[in-house]
């Protein structure tokens, strides 16, 4: 009977909570896709997770672990909402580019983490944190590039932390500029045009990921 009482109480609490409108912060990814004659991007998708908002008064929201799949072909995916508990002026936002390791060992997941989304490796379990495909002209020749950056374990880990401090104070929305060309150039500078497996190279390339995000 005690168990039943607790369950009813929990149910009431749930209802109580859902009637309040939860304040949230909009995070908008503005992807630069001005394809030049040199570079053509065909696929661009990545995960962003573990958002944490920091306010100008120094306080921080709890980390929101949800993983969001951002896909250049899906406009709605570029706009995500991070729930907050208070409406205060935001100083900065911290997040993880990619998925955290716990997510990668948690079995079958749904929503943005559904393996059907093409961002999951079955043979070496884990998420592709960042996928960028296309082609570019190198020494007059059309050269394809294919970057599938993933891996979560130890040295193979490819998720990277990013912190963005806002130039202009905002209360409810944050724009993040995303420039995939920065990554393409960086990868080319180390002569990498194709990465399809976790490993040292993927982890090295992952170090270039934070640079593509700015405000």
């Amino acid at each position: 009977m005690t168990l039943l009482k607790i369950q009813i109480l929990a149910l009431l609490l749930c209802f109580g909570k859902s009637t309040q409108a939860q304040p949230s912060v909009s995070v908008i990814f503005d992807i630069d896709l001005t394809n030049t004659s040199d570079v053509k991007i065909e696929t661009f998708r990545f995960y962003a997770s573990n958002f944490q908002i920091e306010f100008t008064d120094g306080t921080r929201e709890k980390i929101n672990v949800t993983c969001h799949l951002i896909d250049m072909e899906d406009k709605e995916s570029l706009h995500i909402k991070i729930p907050t508990t208070s409406i205060k002026t935001i100083r900065s936002i911290n997040y993880l580019i990619g998925t955290d390791s716990l997510t990668n060992i948690s079995g079958a997941l749904e929503g943005d983490l559904d393996p059907i989304k093409g961002m999951y490796w079955a043979w070496n379990s884990g998420y592709i944190n960042f996928k960028l495909e296309g082609n570019r002209i190198v020494s007059g020749k059309k050269t394809p590039f294919e970057y599938h950056i993933g891996g979560y374990n130890g040295d193979q880990a490819t998720s990277r932390k990013k912190s963005i401090t806002l130039i202009k104070s905002e209360n409810d929305s944050i724009h993040i500029n995303v420039n995939p060309y920065t990554f393409i150039d960086a990868a080319e500078s180390v002569n990498e045009f194709s990465i399809m497996i976790p490993g040292k190279k993927a982890a090295q390339l992952a170090d270039f990921l934070p640079d593509i995000f700015s405000n």
Partner: peptide
């Protein structure tokens, strides 16, 4: 051992 969870 590449698969880390029975569900996947």
């Amino acid at each position: 051992g590449g698969v880390n969870h029975i569900e996947v």
